[in-house]
Design a protein around this nucleic acid. Structure first.
Length: 564
RNA sequence: CGAGGAGUAGCACAGUUUGGUAGUGCACCUGGUUUGGGACCAGGGGGUCGCAGGUUCGAAUCCUGUCUCCUCGACCA
């Protein structure tokens, strides 16, 4: 692309309706423009970059044997009813009606449609396995779009679906796709980790997330400093340290106006880790009281799974009144009128502080034997410094952007939608499915979050919109423009995507723009041209070197080979 | 959905408290001088002040309503 007479602009200052680094750089570099909250135009430069990412994805999908197809986005609502996902998605699905008032939706994901497509083809075990995929828009009415391209309401997703006759086949298809995913993120130069995650609205038995590591991330990743344990906080577990000691005598003590666990512990001069706090929650309109160590947080995901609930909320005063709990002083001893669930950690604690269900009083030296409970389970978030459940190392956190997700779905969709095949014994069986999603837009945002400096974006060669930018500094000089144009043509002929800055701008403007948009290689054609020299500078280096005209192309080719 | 903040030129913002001709920087146009790190001088164009209603002789400014955007939270494959 020659910048003169092209659609190209940059902004000198940050815009105020983007707060994230990547969001602002994408907007300032003229790659995207916001239309509405969570909805963006992809302008030429942005589309070209996105397409480079999509191309890598497509190459790896095809290489893994998957076949591409395309599903519609506008779908009758009934497609999602069979598997109960109209409810599962709730208000995050876009609904609309046609002229006959028939309900339609904009597809938030496509498991059902791919299953229906598979039904047309699958009759016998001989028809399995296979994997199909698409790269298509998805629509989700997010509660809060944010961070530029990270959380948007319309976005592309490459989603793939595997179909096998049994679990063994699924394991194989899953591994093929999982390996392809690793190659995709490696080729895109994303710094990522894979974590175990919750299966959520997708269902199934296994979910692994590919998380780009950045401080902007919305997910907390739990990692081990000794082994390769890695898990999303929502499902992370820890090894509990046994702190049992000889039980002392239970004693009630006055704790006037000390209602938070921190206040109580500091008043009694006790370590918060030697206390147990109560959380009074509304689960399916029932009062459930959770007891966890004083410094812990309840993990809503674990609780919902344990109780088969969709959500947990704080209990209302009316609901609390059905028990003898006293907010601020709630304890498990002689507690009635509520379901009591304790965290498994309490089994390994002794002589702890806990509420007495009397205003202004707590017990000290409480022990498990002093009260009854309904369920004991893992119901809390792990914390940094907790013990790794696998190797005993120390756990630590990182933040991540979920850029890919792979699921072992099992037979959830095939059973409900009747995707069956006849096996060797003429028996009808449901196909076993896996599904695999990647968000190219999130990859783009993640790469920018991970690769930028005060000047702007630093694109890796593999996905940069142009690998080389030629800055022709003296637009009035025929020699300069002739050489720059010749180099531009030659590089493009060699398949090296090249941009020529032939605008009538001062050098500083060109340098700053090319640095902002992150082109990996800059060739400056300037005053050394009379000596037969041009300047080579890599975006990720502060050094520049002079090249003789005859060696320019070889040098660039070699540099790209070594650095892509 | 809860809490907070913001809507004035393409971008960033001042002006609003105390009502009285619509402003500044960057960007843009014309002319000139410059030409290896966001040039300088001179002249110029561009605005229903988010929208609707109200108060007033007069509203960007006061009042009422409403829409949009951002941040934190809730939510989220």
């Amino acid at each position: 692309m020659k910048l003169k007479n092209s659609y190209f602009y940059t902004l000198r200052e940050n815009v105020k309706d983007e707060d994230s680094v990547s969001g602002n750089l994408l907007v300032r570099s003229g790659m995207i423009k916001k239309v509405s909250s969570g909805i963006y135009m992809f302008l030429p430069l942005g589309l070209k970059t996105l397409d480079n990412i999509k191309k890598i994805i497509k190459e790896e999908m095809d290489a893994s044997g998957a076949q591409e197809l395309l599903m519609p986005s506008l779908l009758p609502e009934e497609v999602y009813e069979t598997c109960g996902r109209v409810d599962a998605f709730g208000s995050s699905m876009f609904h609309l009606h046609d002229r006959y008032d028939k309900p339609y939706v904009l597809g938030p994901t496509h498991e059902e449609l791919f299953t229906i497509a598979a039904k047309s083809m699958v009759k016998s075990y001989k028809d399995l396995p296979f994997t199909i995929y698409q790269d298509a828009p998805k629509y989700r009415d997010e509660a809060r779009p944010r961070f530029g391209l990270v959380r948007v309401r319309e976005f592309f997703m490459k989603d793939a679906y595997s179909f096998d006759k049994d679990e063994i086949g699924l394991d194989k298809s899953y591994k093929t796709m999982f390996d392809a995913y690793k190659r995709i993120f490696d080729r895109c130069h994303v710094n990522y980790v894979v974590v175990k995650a919750d299966t959520g609205a997708m269902g199934g038995s296994l979910s692994e997330e590919f998380q780009a590591v950045t401080d902007l991330g919305e997910d907390l990743l739990v990692l081990c400093d000794k082994c390769d344990y890695s898990s999303n906080l929502e499902v992370a577990t820890r090894k509990i340290v046994d702190q049992n000691e000889e039980a002392k005598t239970l004693e009630i003590v006055e704790t006037p106006n000390q209602e938070t666990i921190e206040e109580v512990c500091s008043y009694l001069n006790v370590d918060v880790k030697k206390s147990v706090k109560a959380l009074l929650m509304n689960v399916n309109d029932e009062l459930v009281i959770f007891f966890i160590r004083g410094d812990r947080e309840l993990n809503e995901n674990k609780v919902c799974k344990l109780l088969g609930a969709k959500e947990v909320n704080f209990a209302s005063d009316d609901l609390i009144a059905k028990s003898n709990a006293v907010p601020g002083y709630t304890g498990p001893i002689k507690l009635t009128g509520a379901k009591i669930i304790i965290d498994e950690e309490l089994k390994y604690m002794s002589n702890f502080v806990v509420g007495a269900n009397v205003k202004g009083y707590h017990y000290i030296n409480a022990n498990l034997k002093d009260f009854n409970y309904d369920i004991c389970a893992d119901i809390v978030n792990v914390k940094e410094e907790d013990i790794c459940p696998v190797c005993g190392g120390k756990l630590y956190f990182k933040k991540g952007i979920e850029v890919g997700n792979t699921f072992k779905l099992g037979t959830k969709y095939s059973e409900k939608l009747g995707l069956t095949y006849l096996d060797e014994n003429n028996e009808s069986k449901p196909a076993v499915m896996g599904c695999y999603g990647i968000g190219p837009g999130r990859i783009l945002a993640s790469i920018i979050e991970q690769n930028n400096d005060e000047k702007g974006i630093i694109f890796p060669l593999a996905i940069a919109p142009y690998k080389v930018a030629i800055a022709a500094l003296n637009t009035n000089d025929d020699n300069c423009m002739n050489y720059a144009n010749k180099l531009y043509d030659e590089l493009n002929k060699l398949g090296i995507d090249c941009m020529l800055d032939d605008r009538e701008e001062r050098p500083g403007v060109k340098f700053n723009d090319l640095e902002l948009i992150g082109i990996p290689i800059r060739i400056t054609v300037g005053k050394k041209l009379v000596d037969g020299l041009v300047e080579f500078k890599a975006r990720n280096s502060s050094e520049s070197i002079d090249l003789k005209l005859e060696e320019v192309i070889n040098y660039i080719q070699k540099y790209i080979e070594e650095n892509i």
